[in-house]
Design a binder for these strands. Structure first.
Length: 593
DNA sequence: GTAGGGTTAG
């Protein structure tokens, strides 16, 4: 152990501490003895107490130290008290730290920062904001270290209005050229989904470092604009800023979001050239990319060759496999994990429940529910939602409902999942009744609730009711989106009213997207409407969204009316565009096997 | 003592 005696600017007297009083803990007293032996005559009071604070591990140590500060007249030494407050927060003695602060007469900005930092450390963001406000009332000027914590609090809560006011105060206090704070502001606007303000802050930056670029890239990724994110990333490299490993993580996430395996592979190569391939957290992003894109071999080798295998790495491969048609592999890995006594977390379980849903086996679903019920996550809202969805996908509305009934706190997501469960299984009336019940319970519907309701009407032939739901959305403050329009087209198409579906698309207030034309195309396939099907296919082609499934629909449509020339044209198109038909499969469970 | 990332239900 080394203990250097610092010479601080403050003067001090030789200390005569009755050290025996400190002897309540052998480790703590050992430090004290060692310390006092080394500096027997005169020691720096501040350094001594700083050292003591570092070695204290319990509240009783803190209160002993506090007593001695008083004895030695250091109770109003701001330097020591700041350290004292920092250590109290580190030891999770939050109320105690606050009490010391409240009782301190001369509150310098450092002291305020210590309390604000402490609350931030414990994610008590409302307290951060409360202290920042109190600081202003006390006429203490914040410094460059105050704002980052306050901005983080505003971003995490999120508290857009307050954050905007903080932005104004940063300008007023003359910190507008502080590069660190500009990145903090950017982070705040990104977290609040304020892409316009984020962009303004970003564009006004004189110096954009890799952090600034990473923030704006992750903002686009968060917004579902992965293509734009990758474009910005190219700009970054063109402007001479190199990717570091964190920026690479965001870039890889953008690739996996849009399934751009080629660009992902290029980035992987770049990452290797830059020497980041062993970075454990980057490996999570790589495994996730390959697993989500269905590159099972690549994902596995990266996984098994990893030096650090933490829960997140397990999660990345399990959830990636669950989403890319490798559900049984995902469950196999989940079992391996349990076999090796590695504790799954909520994300692991969510992903494994999803994998069970994809498999579609009721027996597996029941096993999964048993596992959840025996775990500490049995009341986790997200996992209960996943269980409801799982049973619905395995065809058991009753078991989904049982999970729903046993869920104590039902948020809008849980209600929506149950409505969707009824919907996809054709229990339209029950979905509508549950929606009514949900409103009675005072829960506000969101866009997914309406998607579930329209799906329910669509799958049950309740066309009138579906229209009614669709037209009522805005009354609940929910703007219809592409998926809702697509779902209505699907509903009209299933009912055989292709003309009405087409007119509905024509009258849409927003440009119809791929989901809308895709819904029309599949309705055309069912009802053998070649003319309209060709219109839909043309639009999908021009949107660049004519995928393998659409080729198959078109080919089947031509075949169903005997237009074999059309079938050949589609086949030729598939060959020329390098599209492969995804191998489809269906599973039937017999006696639980 | 200050800013960026990855796994995550409907």
């Amino acid at each position: 152990m080394s203990f250097t005696i610092n010479s601080h600017h403050r003067s001090f007297k030789s200390l005569h501490l009755p050290l025996k009083i400190f002897i309540f803990n052998s480790t703590f007293s050992r430090h004290l003895t060692s310390c006092s032996n080394r500096s027997s005559n005169s020691i720096d009071a501040e350094s001594f107490f700083t050292f003591l604070l570092q070695k204290s591990t319990r509240k009783v140590h803190l209160s002993q130290i506090q007593n001695h500060l008083i004895v030695h007249g250091l109770q109003s030494n701001g330097f020591v008290i700041t350290k004292f407050i920092n250590r109290s927060f580190e030891l999770k003695e939050i109320d105690y730290a606050r009490q010391v602060f409240d009782e301190f007469p001369d509150r310098h900005v450092f002291l305020w920062n210590a309390v604000i930092r402490g609350y931030s450390m414990h994610k008590m963001f409302d307290k951060v904001i409360e202290m920042y406000s109190a600081m202003q009332i006390a006429f203490v000027n914040p410094d460059a270290f105050t704002f980052p914590y306050v901005l983080k609090a505003c971003g995490d809560l999120p508290e857009l209005g307050f954050g905007r006011a903080v932005h104004a105060q940063i300008l007023r206090h003359g910190f507008d050229n502080d590069a660190f704070l500009r990145n903090g502001l950017l982070s705040f606007y990104v977290k609040c989904d304020e892409s316009v303000s984020a962009r303004v802050v970003f564009d006004q930056m004189k110096v954009k470092d890799v952090v600034s670029w990473t923030l704006i890239v992750s903002g686009y990724v968060q917004n579902g604009e992965a293509v734009e994110a990758l474009r910005v990333l190219r700009n970054m490299r063109e402007s001479g800023v190199n990717l570091d490993w964190i920026a690479s993580v965001s870039a890889l996430k953008a690739c996996s979001d849009i399934g751009d395996l080629n660009q992902g592979r290029c980035l992987h190569g770049l990452v290797i050239r830059m020497g980041y391939e062993l970075e454990p957290d980057l490996r999570v992003a790589l495994v996730s990319l390959y697993a989500k894109c269905g590159e099972a071999t690549a994902a596995r080798s990266l996984f098994y060759e990893a030096k650090v295998v933490d829960v997140m790495l397990w999660n990345s491969i399990i959830s990636g496999f669950a989403k890319s048609g490798y559900a049984s592999e995902a469950l196999e890995l989940f079992n391996q994990m349990i076999g090796r006594s590695i504790r799954p977390d909520a994300v692991t379980i969510q992903s494994s429940v999803l994998a069970s849903a994809q498999i579609g086996s009721l027996e597996q679903a029941k096993r999964m529910e048993c596992y959840v019920n025996a775990s500490s996550y049995r009341h986790d809202g997200v996992i209960r939602t996943a269980l409801i969805d799982m049973y619905a996908k395995c065809g058991s509305v009753e078991l989904a409902r049982r999970v729903f009934n046993h869920t104590t706190t039902k948020d809008v997501v849980v209600w929506s999942a149950m409505i969707m469960s009824y919907g996809i299984n054709g229990w339209g009336r029950d979905a509508l009744a549950l929606f009514h019940e949900m409103k009675m319970a005072g829960v506000c519907p969101n866009e997914v609730t309406f998607l579930g309701l329209i799906t329910a009407c669509s799958h049950s032939g309740l066309v009138e009711e579906g229209w009614e739901v669709f037209h009522s959305m805005r009354g609940y403050g929910v703007e219809p989106r592409q998926k809702h329009y697509g779902s209505i087209v699907d509903m009209l198409g299933r009912a055989g009213d292709l003309g009405k579906a087409y007119r509905f698309i024509e009258a849409m207030p927003v440009d119809p997207g791929a989901s809308v034309w895709g819904a029309l195309l599949s309705a055309c396939e069912v009802h053998r409407s070649v003319w309209l099907g060709e219109r839909a296919a043309e639009r999908l082609l021009s949107l660049g969204a004519f995928d393998a499934g659409h080729h198959v629909l078109m080919s089947n449509l031509y075949a169903s009316v005997g237009l074999w020339g059309g079938v050949d044209r589609v086949r030729e198109l598939m060959r020329s565009r390098g599209v492969c038909k995804d191998s489809g499969c269906s599973a039937v469970e017999i006696c639980g096997a």
